[in-house]
């Protein structure tokens, strides 16, 4: 399927470019917009993998919520930081380290036999979202992680409110 490969290569290039632009922008809001572009690219990858539900959730949660919160957080900081974020002088070292790490990862993954084989066809006639729903609440499936996820979200909410809430005066 060459058309699909073309779309994949284009999307992968888009994600890499957007990610690169994101980390090199001085303007934090621009960086956030590039991040959104990269996240959108990831949702296209999900579509190519026949994971429509994940693609939609990716857009809903990452573009619709997390990136918005990021921009809010950026706006809460001082204006001059938004315009020109400080540059870490030691970025050369970090670059070398990251390159080595990436190189190692590529070699490691290359040795994994499954990497050369093609992925099996997914039977798209089944309703995968429904099967996910059944798996989430069935005892032999993921019912414990499902309920724990809810507790985790609750903990995240409580923690976030404790940190973000402005201190009351006189306390």
């Amino acid at each position: 399927m060459t058309a699909m490969q073309g779309v994949f290569l284009f999307t992968a290039g888009l994600i890499l470019w957007a990610a690169f632009m994101m980390v090199t922008r001085q303007n934090l809001v621009h960086a956030a917009f590039y991040l959104i572009l990269a996240l959108f690219g990831v949702s296209i990858i999900f579509v190519l993998l026949d994971a429509g539900f994940l693609a939609v959730v990716q857009v809903l949660v990452y573009i619709g919520a997390i990136s918005i919160i990021m921009i809010f957080a950026v706006m809460l900081t001082r204006g001059d930081v938004i315009e020109e974020a400080p540059v870490n002088k030691n970025y050369g070292w970090a670059l070398v380290l990251a390159a080595l790490f990436a190189f190692g990862l590529i070699i490691l993954i290359g040795q994994w036999p499954a990497v050369a084989s093609l992925a099996g066809e997914i039977d798209t006639s089944r309703d995968l979202a429904a099967e996910l729903g059944v798996a989430l609440v069935s005892p032999e499936g993921f019912v414990i992680p499902f309920e724990v996820a809810s507790v985790l979200l609750l903990a995240a909410l409580v923690g976030a409110l404790m940190v973000a809430r402005p201190q009351k005066k006189g306390k």
């Binding site: 959730v57 809903l60 919520a65 309703d127 996910l132 729903g133 989430l136 996820a149 909410l157």
Partner: peptide, 26 residues
């Protein structure tokens, strides 16, 4: 900071409903 707090509460509920949709389909 209030904008940010509403954003956080929204995020939690957003993820919650994302979990609930497959449950509703099944």
């Amino acid at each position: 900071v209030q904008y940010y707090i509403y954003g956080l509460v929204f995020l939690i509920f957003d993820i919650e409903t994302a979990f609930l949709y497959p449950w509703a389909v099944a």
